[in-house]
Design a protein around this nucleic acid. Structure first.
Lengths: 123, 123
DNA sequence: CGTATTGTACTAGTGTTATAGTACAAGCAG
DNA sequence: CTGCTTGTACTATAACACTAGTACAATACG
């Protein structure tokens, strides 16, 4: 479900954090949906349970998730990201430039990126 | 010249490695060109000299750079990377997740991203 | 009630990353 | 040769990431 790579130099906790945020942003995880349990996800990803627990805890602190003991962890209903910033447009442009640049280094064309993003959308 | 972020969870050495490879791939650094000295780059990036030296050493081991003591570090003439693109898919996936995650933090939906990317396409 | 499941907390230990400082080796220019 | 610059090597230290194991707290369910 979530994609983490233990061989990547980027720490697992950071990858998982990003992965979960992305899943929510793309609608793969809708508000109210239950996430895998800490132990289950740890097994699935071949990762330590503490690492998963810490990511869940951090995301709860950030208001993205909601955890209920003995029940599970869920996507918050009101998990609408912080209000629009003044620099929104500029930020997005910088983000896209960075993204497209990195992708180009790997030999991916813009068209490929769009195709792949559409796939994300459908999940 | 190279861009590294000490606050990123991705290790500095990995960022710098990628940054240098990218500069070469995009032609910012042509074969034969001299890179900044270990000490100079360390100062510029506000990073330890050992970290820079290790990246240079690793890139030399990989046949990307060529170092000459007392002279400097240079881009190898025959630095045509065989492009171990076995990890292409994985890289793209990680890239997209990173991208979508960052965008979500700014409050952008996937649909918006696709729209914006299409604009890039027309340029 | 009792039991299983869930998240949480804590300790201890290992490996990696990065820093700081020092010293050495190799090449160049005067 | 002398002096400077370059890359290289080494030790020590600190912080972080991750693992392993154990124990506890809260909830659901029969």
């Amino acid at each position: 479900m979530f994609n983490v790579d233990s061989k990547s130099p980027t720490p697992i906790y950071a990858q998982l954090d990003r992965s979960i945020r992305a899943a929510i942003a793309t609608g793969q995880l809708e508000p109210g949906a239950q996430l895998p349990t800490v132990r289950q996800l740890a097994v699935d990803l071949a990762v330590n349970a503490n690492t998963v627990a810490r990511v869940y805890a951090q995301l709860e602190r950030d208001g993205i998730l909601e955890t209920r003991r003995g029940v599970g962890t869920f996507v918050r209903e009101s998990s609408s990201p912080p209000a629009a910033l003044a620099h929104r447009e500029r930020e997005l442009r910088a983000l896209i430039q960075h993204f497209v640049g990195d992708a180009a280094l790997l030999g991916f064309t813009l068209a490929e990126l769009i195709t792949q993003l559409r796939n994300e959308e459908k999940k």
